[in-house]
Computed example of a mutant assay.
Amino acid sequence: MFTGLIETIGTVLEYTELDTTSSGGNGVSIVVGDCASILVDVHLGDSISTNGVCLTVTEFDEAKTQFKVGVAPETLRRTNLGDLKKGSKVNLERAVTSDVRLGGHVVQGHVDTIAAITKRVPDGNAITFTFQLRDKENIAYIVEKGFIAIDGTSLTVTAVNYETYEFSIMMISYTQGKVTLPSRELGESVNIEVDLTGKLIEKQIEVNLNGQINNEDSVLHKLIVSLVEKKVKELVK
C-alpha cells in the first residue's frame, strides 16, 4: 500500500525487453537510479511504486543507489511503463510502514488505465491539468473532490465531464517541483488509479441486488414480480 506522496524522482538507467524464449513472456526489466535516498531501508522483494505501479525490487547495485524490477505483459498493457526509455523520469514511493502518516490517500499501486493529457492551463502559481481516459468505463469512479492517483501522485479531482470522459486536477507550485507531471507534454499518457472506495461500493450494491432479485422471499423480488404482473394485465386489457 502507498500514500500517493512521491518521495523522489528517479531516472531509468536501463530498459530491456525480455527474451520470450527464456522468460515465457514479452515483459521488460527496468533499472532505476538517482534514488539512493529511498533505498536505505528497502530490501529485495519489497515494493516500490514506480509511476504509480507497484513493482517488486529484484536487484540492487553494490552501492545501493539503484534498483531493478521486472514488468509483466499485463502491466505493460494497463500502464504507460511501455513508453519509458533510458533517461525517462519516474515518480517513486516506498510501500508504507505501520508508522507512516497517511498524508495522501490509500493507493494500491494497481493501475486501472491510462489517460492522455488534453489541457494544461496556468492558474496563478498553480496549473490545472485535464485528462481523457482511454478506458471510458472508469469515469464512473471519478467524482468531483474525490481522490485520484496520477502516475502515483495523490491528487484531488476538481472537475469531471462524464460525456467526454475527461477530468481535471489542480497542482500547486510545491507539488510541481516534486513530481514528473509538469514536465509532460499534451497528448502524453499518465497512469490512473481511481479511488478503490467507489469500486467497492459498486460491487457491494451489485452483489446485494443480485441476491435480492434471485431470492423469491425478498421485498425487491416481490416488488418486481408485482410490477411485471401489473404491466401484463394492462397490456392484456
Score class of each variant (00 low, 15 high):
9 I>W: 01
26 N>A: 15
187 G>V: 08
70 G>T: 12
27 G>S: 13
45 G>I: 03
71 V>L: 12
18 L>N: 10
77 R>C: 12
189 S>V: 02
229 E>S: 09
200 L>G: 06
51 N>W: 11
130 T>Y: 10
197 T>K: 04
105 H>Q: 02
58 T>E: 06
171 M>A: 11
225 V>W: 14
173 S>P: 11
129 F>H: 04
102 L>A: 09
132 Q>C: 15
83 D>R: 11
194 V>N: 00
208 N>G: 10
32 V>L: 12
133 L>W: 13
100 V>H: 05
214 N>A: 11
69 V>R: 05
232 V>T: 08
134 R>H: 12
108 Q>S: 05
78 R>S: 11
37 S>P: 04
217 D>E: 08
5 L>R: 01
19 D>Y: 06
187 G>H: 09
187 G>C: 03
76 L>P: 10
151 D>F: 04
216 E>D: 13
33 G>A: 07
70 G>V: 11
25 G>W: 09
218 S>K: 01
177 G>M: 00
209 L>E: 04
193 E>S: 05
108 Q>W: 01
5 L>E: 01
78 R>A: 13
120 R>S: 09
121 V>S: 14
140 A>C: 07
129 F>Y: 14
172 I>Q: 14
84 L>W: 03
66 Q>V: 05
215 N>F: 03
183 S>K: 14
96 V>M: 11
158 T>V: 15
10 G>C: 06
230 K>H: 14
7 E>Q: 12
127 I>P: 08
77 R>P: 01
36 A>Q: 14
120 R>C: 10
212 Q>L: 13
102 L>K: 09
37 S>Q: 08
43 H>Y: 11
38 I>G: 07
183 S>L: 14
210 N>C: 08
30 I>F: 01
131 F>Y: 13
142 I>T: 01
184 R>F: 07
166 E>G: 03
134 R>C: 07
56 T>F: 04
188 E>Y: 08
114 I>K: 15
3 T>K: 01
14 E>M: 08
84 L>F: 05
116 A>R: 14
121 V>F: 13
76 L>F: 05
129 F>E: 02
237 K>N: 15
135 D>T: 11
113 T>D: 05
219 V>Y: 00
74 E>Y: 09
85 K>P: 04
75 T>G: 02
25 G>E: 06
121 V>Y: 09
21 T>Y: 11
236 V>I: 14
11 T>I: 12
127 I>E: 10
79 T>W: 07
112 D>F: 01
184 R>I: 01
220 L>C: 14
17 E>T: 15
192 I>F: 01
157 V>C: 05
47 S>A: 12
211 G>E: 06
131 F>G: 09
212 Q>D: 12
234 E>V: 08
104 G>A: 06
140 A>N: 07
153 T>K: 00
113 T>G: 02
93 E>K: 11
159 A>H: 14
196 L>A: 03
14 E>D: 10
82 G>C: 06
118 T>A: 05
117 I>A: 00
54 C>N: 13
63 A>M: 14
38 I>F: 05
136 K>V: 08
35 C>Q: 07
158 T>H: 10
27 G>M: 08
192 I>K: 03
96 V>L: 10
111 V>S: 06
117 I>G: 02
185 E>Q: 15
184 R>A: 04
39 L>I: 15
140 A>F: 12
108 Q>A: 06
195 D>M: 00
17 E>S: 15
95 A>R: 03
20 T>S: 15
10 G>Y: 10
214 N>E: 12
210 N>V: 09
